[in-house]
Amino acid sequence: MIAAALTGFATGFSLILAIGAQNAFVLRQGLLRSHVLPLCLLCSLSDAALIAAGVAGFGALAQALPWFPRAMSLAGAAFLVVYGAMRLQAAWRGDYALALAGESAALRPTLAMGAAFTWLNPHVYLDTLGLVGAVSTQFAGAEKAAFGVGATAASFAFFFALGFGARLLAPVMRSAEAWRRLDLLIALVMWTLALGLLRG
């Protein structure tokens, strides 16, 4: 069971490690030190639900609904384009008084944005329902459950390390120019991901 759990942890961690829209958003909130705990919980619990579905064998959703992956790709791309534009606009305006003061949007809009980054991202379904679900098929019974727990633990470890570890970068983010560069980088990441979704 330990081996299965470690395999699940390694699988989950390797899939979530890539810089993506969700990770960039969690990083930004971590730098702001705003709503970090509820946002990390939202992302981790969402991953847990999707991993559980994948391990339980619901990866056949895309086969049952052939239009589903493309619909998710289009919705996700539209969302990423809009959010990238918002970050570009923020960089253009250069008004980072609130960011420098450590203030951000209220809790509900922050969680709504976090939920959108999670549930409108087609890659999350590929990773959790598809890849994690596929790897889990080599296990059965208690070992399969241990695999799922390991993959879920990886999500919790990653998001909490990213969200709360971001404060270590706080000394670097004490100027409006640093925030402008971060927003430009986030906009570039968002649009690159959106282009990838549209091409896919």
Rank of each mutant, 00 (worst) to 15 (best):
A4F: 04
A4C: 06
A5V: 02
A5P: 04
A5N: 02
T11V: 14
F13P: 00
S14I: 14
I19S: 11
L37S: 06
L41M: 12
L41E: 02
S44P: 01
L45W: 03
S46P: 01
S46M: 01
A49R: 12
G54E: 05
A56Q: 12
L61E: 12
Q63L: 14
L65E: 13
P66W: 15
P66E: 15
W67R: 14
W67S: 13
R70L: 08
R70I: 03
A71I: 05
G76F: 09
V81S: 02
V82F: 13
Y83R: 06
G84V: 08
L88E: 01
G94D: 10
G94S: 11
D95W: 05
L100E: 02
L100H: 05
A106Y: 03
L107E: 00
T110S: 02
L111C: 03
G114S: 04
A115E: 02
A116F: 04
W119S: 05
W119T: 02
Y125N: 09
Y125P: 00
D127L: 01
L131T: 15
V132L: 01
V135N: 11
F139H: 07
A140G: 10
A140M: 06
G141F: 09
K144F: 03
F147C: 04
A154S: 09
A154Y: 03
S155L: 00
S155K: 06
A157R: 08
F160P: 00
L162M: 09
L162P: 00
F164W: 08
A166D: 06
L169W: 05
A170R: 11
P171H: 06
S175R: 11
W179A: 08
W179Y: 12
R180W: 07
L185V: 12
I186M: 09
